[in-house]
C-alpha cells in the first residue's frame, strides 16, 4: 500500500494527464455524438448509437486532426530548440550551446556514466538512433496521426458530400482540398502561437515552483534556467 502510494506520487504528473486525457476524449465522444445526431435529424436522416459514432470517420477525423497538431508542435519544439535559441527563456539553451553539443556534455560514448542508458555507451547506428529517439518517435506519431486524419477525413468528407448530393472525391483530391488544409492549418496556427507565447512570456513571467518557469527571482536575461 505504501509502495503504491509512493509510486502514484512519483508518477502523479503522467497519471493526472492520462486521467485528463481519458475524461476529455470520452467527453468529446459524448458531445460529438449529440452534435452529429442533431445534424442527422435536421437532414431527415437516422441518428446513430454511441458505439457507431466512436467507430465513425467523423469522430476519427476530429480526434486525429488534434493529435497530429499536438505531436507536430512537440516535434518542432524538440528539434528547433537544438539549434535555435531565445535569450532569457527557460525553454531555450544558452546561445553558445546551440547545436548537437559535445559528446562530453551529452554524456555519451566514453563520457557516459555508470547509470547512463546502454545505447548511450555504444557507438554507431544504435547511438545515433537513441540520440534522436525522442524526435523520431514524436515525428513518426505526427505523420501517422496526419495520415489517419487524411483517411478518416476523406471518409467523413465524402459522407457529407453524398448527403449534399455531390460526387465523392479520391484520397489524392482530398489531401489537396481546402477542407483538409483548413482542418490542418487551423490546428497548426494555434500550436505555433502557444509555443511562441510560452517561449516569450516565460522570459518575463514566473510560476513559482513550476519547472517550466525560471525561479521567481531569476533575472529576465538568464537563459535555460528552470525553477
Amino acid at each position: 500500500m505504501v509502495e503504491a502510494v509512493r509510486w502514484l506520487r512519483e508518477n502523479s504528473l503522467s497519471v493526472a494527464f492520462l486521467v485528463l486525457f481519458l475524461l476529455t476524449v470520452g467527453g468529446q465522444a459524448v458531445a460529438g455524438l449529440h452534435e452529429y445526431n442533431d445534424q442527422q435529424l435536421a437532414q431527415g436522416l437516422t441518428p446513430i448509437s454511441f458505439f457507431a459514432y466512436v467507430a465513425s470517420s467523423s469522430y476519427a477525423v476530429d480526434v486525429a486532426e488534434n493529435w497530429q497538431s499536438e505531436y507536430l508542435q512537440f516535434f518542432l519544439f524538440i528539434m528547433l530548440t537544438v539549434w535555435l535559441v531565445q535569450k532569457g527563456s527557460p525553454e531555450s539553451k544558452e546561445p553558445h550551446a546551440a547545436g548537437a553539443e559535445s559528446d562530453e556534455r551529452q554524456q555519451i560514448g566514453r563520457y557516459a556514466d555508470d547509470d547512463s542508458p546502454k545505447w548511450a555507451r555504444v557507438k554507431g547506428p544504435r547511438l545515433w538512433l537513441f540520440s534522436n529517439s525522442l524526435g523520431l518517435v514524436m515525428g513518426t506519431i505526427f505523420l501517422l496521426s496526419w495520415l489517419a486524419q487524411s483517411v478518416a477525413g476523406q471518409a467523413a468528407y465524402n459522407s457529407e458530400r453524398l448527403i449534399d448530393l455531390r460526387d465523392p472525391v479520391s484520397w489524392g483530391t482530398y489531401v489537396t482540398s481546402a477542407e483538409f488544409w483548413n482542418r490542418s492549418l487551423q490546428n497548426w496556427q494555434s500550436e505555433m502561437l502557444a509555443v511562441l507565447s510560452m517561449v516569450v512570456l516565460s522570459i518575463y513571467l514566473r510560476q513559482r515552483g513550476s519547472p517550466e518557469s525560471k525561479p521567481v527571482g531569476a533575472a529576465h536575461t538568464s537563459t535555460g534556467v528552470e525553477g
Binding site: 467507430a55 486525429a64 493529435w67 501517422l144 496521426s145 495520415l147 483517411v151
Partner: peptide, 17 residues
C-alpha cells in the same frame, strides 16, 4: 500508448473503405 491507437484507427479507417 497513443501510437498503437493511431495505427488501429488508421487500419479501421482503411478497412472501413
Amino acid at each position: 500508448m497513443r501510437l498503437p491507437l493511431i495505427v488501429l484507427a488508421s487500419a479501421l479507417a482503411v478497412t472501413g473503405c
